[in-house]
Amino acid sequence: MARRRSEASGKAPLTLEVNGETVELAVTPQKTLLEILREDLGLTGTKHGCELGECGTCTVTLDGVPILSCLMLGLACEGKSVRTVEGMAHGAELHPLQRAFADLGAAQCGYCTPGIMLAAEALIAGNPSPTRDQIKDALSGNLCRCTGYIKIYEAVELAAAWMRGEEARPREESLYGER
């Protein structure tokens, strides 16, 4: 089995875990994880903006590490665990990041949102209280054209507070502006 998978030009079998579920499929070597998620698995929550690693839109996490699915071959993910936006909610309950992004309008068109939330989730996993500058650094590979990032920072901060178990609320100035 392993030997067969070490060489592929036609379709090769691939087993990976996507959002906690094992999936088995057969893919050609040139198929990227992005294409597999969107086209083979119907997980269209993962978006794409350039397919060249220049925008961050297609971010997913691979074994907990945020990566660009447009530059990741499916076959290189054999046996690994992939997390997409579809895996973020806990049952019918939104993930704290999803709640915060929704409440603060951090998703305007919503197209960069899945990738940014996954990058933010990985940040918070390693650093439960990120500073504004750490958030900027962690999200510097994800372009957004709608928000100017401000609401995104605020949402990440709010969600991080929630995830620390704090009863945080959005700042008044975030919602209404300065008085």
Binding site: E7, S9, T28, P29, Q30, E51
Partner: peptide, 12 residues
């Protein structure tokens, strides 16, 4: 979508 051309993939 920009896609990769076909190739043989080896994973030593």
């Amino acid at each position: 979508m920009l896609r990769l051309p076909p190739f043989t993939y080896l994973q030593p």
